[in-house]
Amino acid sequence: MAEIVFEKVGKSFGSTKVIENLDLTIEDGKFTVLVGSSGCGKTTLLRMIAGIGPATSGRILMDGKDITHQPPEKRDIAMVFQNYAIYPTMSVRENIEFGLKNKKVPKEERDRRIAEYAEIVGMTPYLDRKPSDLSGGQRQRIALARAMVKKPSVFLMDEPLSNLDAKLRAAMRVELIELQRRLGTTFVYVTHDQIEAMSMADTIVLMEKGQIQQIGSPEEIYHEPANIFSAQFIGTPPMNVLDLDGGVRFGVRPESIRMSAERMDGMALYRRGHVITREMLGAELQYKVRLSDGKTLMVRSENDRDDVEESADVWVMAPARHLHFFDADGRHIGHGGPEDLLKKVGGINE
């Protein structure tokens, strides 16, 4: 069991408070992703779990044990750094072996584990090479093997894929998911890329400015965003948010908007719009549309569902269930209702 609990945790650098009074429980055995923009505090939290950037207030518990002041080397964790932190003067084998040697693991056990995990990451033929001869992707696998070989209760990963090219990144995403399923260990993964978060996480912890905006599964965050920030952070392009009166705002995702020359029945949102740009992205069409009141919307249409031309004048529509309402503080009121707000959106008579 390796459940991690943050209790009223705070972190200050000098007089700057980065994190204040934060509570969080990271479930054992799950793939949890801490996601947010730069400086939101996600890496700070990760380093607190590792012990290399200790909390300045509050407690951190692992498995119920208070590890707040425990030195990093005594914690049962392993970490993969963004730049891999491979020891450049040691061979691949020595890199992987280093932690085990320090923990006085006997030689046969060491060799066995190295062989096993080198095989899992596919680096067996490279064991006696120097890291400087290897590519970024290969070095990343070494970092992974080095972490796994310690058989920790928790894996920490700090944006491990951000230095890889797009294709490799996509492939590694899948591999990491498989790895976690296979090992069953708690994974805590930090990224700024919401696509990575959505694709890999069992649980997403969305952070901004040192505070947790929302915790939930990818489905939950997508369908039930807790606030405007969550709603707009997840999803590309971000959710379109428009004003209603009384401080209330409503939002609709680009992929939920319909467009056509004729009015369609059964919608809750109706506006007239002028298509400004049309981007052909392969399986999707992406549009920028200007409404009659001057506001612009992004619209995404998959598989040629609504194919309109540039400079066309169209009806811009969306069904009730895809409209999300937010109060004056940005908090989510609901989607698909309440009725009175739905009516206000209207536009039936435009």
Partner: peptide
């Protein structure tokens, strides 16, 4: 890079 030292620490190196 400091990360190397951090990694070494996590690897239990004195």
């Amino acid at each position: 890079p400091t990360e190397i030292y951090e990694s070494a620490r996590l690897d239990g190196s004195s």
